[in-house]
Design a protein around this nucleic acid. Sequence first.
DNA 1: CCGCTCATGTAACTGGTTACATGATTTA
DNA 2: TAAATCATGTAACCAGTTACATGAGCGG
Lengths: 194, 194
Amino acid sequence: MPQRRLSELESFVLGLVWRHGPLTAYEIRRLLAQSPSTQWTASAGSIYPLVARLERSRHLKSALERNGRRSRRNYALTPLGHAALQSWIGPPLDEQAITVTHDPLRSRARFLAALTPSQRRRWVDAALEALVEVERRVDAWHALHASAGDPFAALVTRHGQLDLAFRRAWLREVRAAGSGAVSRPASARRGAQP
Amino acid sequence: MPQRRLSELESFVLGLVWRHGPLTAYEIRRLLAQSPSTQWTASAGSIYPLVARLERSRHLKSALERNGRRSRRNYALTPLGHAALQSWIGPPLDEQAITVTHDPLRSRARFLAALTPSQRRRWVDAALEALVEVERRVDAWHALHASAGDPFAALVTRHGQLDLAFRRAWLREVRAAGSGAVSRPASARRGAQP
DNA sequence: CCGCTCATGTAACTGGTTACATGATTTA
DNA sequence: TAAATCATGTAACCAGTTACATGAGCGG
């Protein structure tokens, strides 16, 4: 067995199966869809091949459960899967876990000088509006986990709340920075620092 | 022309070309590599086909510059490219810009109950350690842009600093949550909430 | 009986990664 | 002159997406 490194999604699925007991691929998809992160689509096309892969690599084992004519395939963690989960969590932390969080708003803000001052003001408003929608998602997630009593699930909510607070504070600074007149860059060409 | 929606990377590259004047694919790669975000690898295999694509779609135009035997292909923004950049930035903000930031540390923290309390403590230490490395990257980016005078470039640094502060605060809460004894979940099985 | 949710899959695609390959120019 | 950097590409691969397809069971 080649034992290649598991992807983030694969590892996360191991975590879900560990945490929520034997699960069908369908249930895994639902859990993923409820997650506040939009990182993955949780489409059938990703999950069904993924669990099949994890079973072939002995991280998951499955059992067919038959209720009348309908059947469901339950996936459970193997000891190998449990070890893989722990090693994914760390320590040591995988290199790819050491990142500045990626924020599409930040990516766009970098080029705000391409807009007029009034467009920039409207951009900040739209971004703050967008965060209201994000807040709704975090709250929805929180509602699902409020009763559970798992302190680590609560930390996901907490992360979302702190994230929102920080990005709102940042957007206020963006508004301030955008108010002053900013001209198109002088395109210093070759010597330009990035 | 089909005019399909540009990817985040394609749009970001338009932004770089807009901001930093005519650029070669090689320079675009360097700029991307300096960026604090690890979102993209900036490999030759992604950038060269990408700029070729953007030229075919008329978002970029290129000119071959010949200095002696060596030649470089400079890409510049077309009016269509400029319009595409502005429409990517928004407003309105694209649906995919409306996200909870994705943090690999949060993904892992969700399953910290799979570790022993002492492992959890070491995990938090490792995570804080990792953020020191992230801080180094943010500072390096800042050093490149400190002199530039572009207030929107400065906001990228600022975003990174606020991001670090918030994640450190969150990790302190993780430590607090992890100190109490937390047993393996009772695997409530079918009725389990995610 | 209609529509919804449960449940499982497949096929084609695609954007980006990894690894390889080549050659010119600059610097130690 | 050797190593590093500039500069441009290609080919194979891969994880995840989109879209399609099927059928059972259930509630109104």
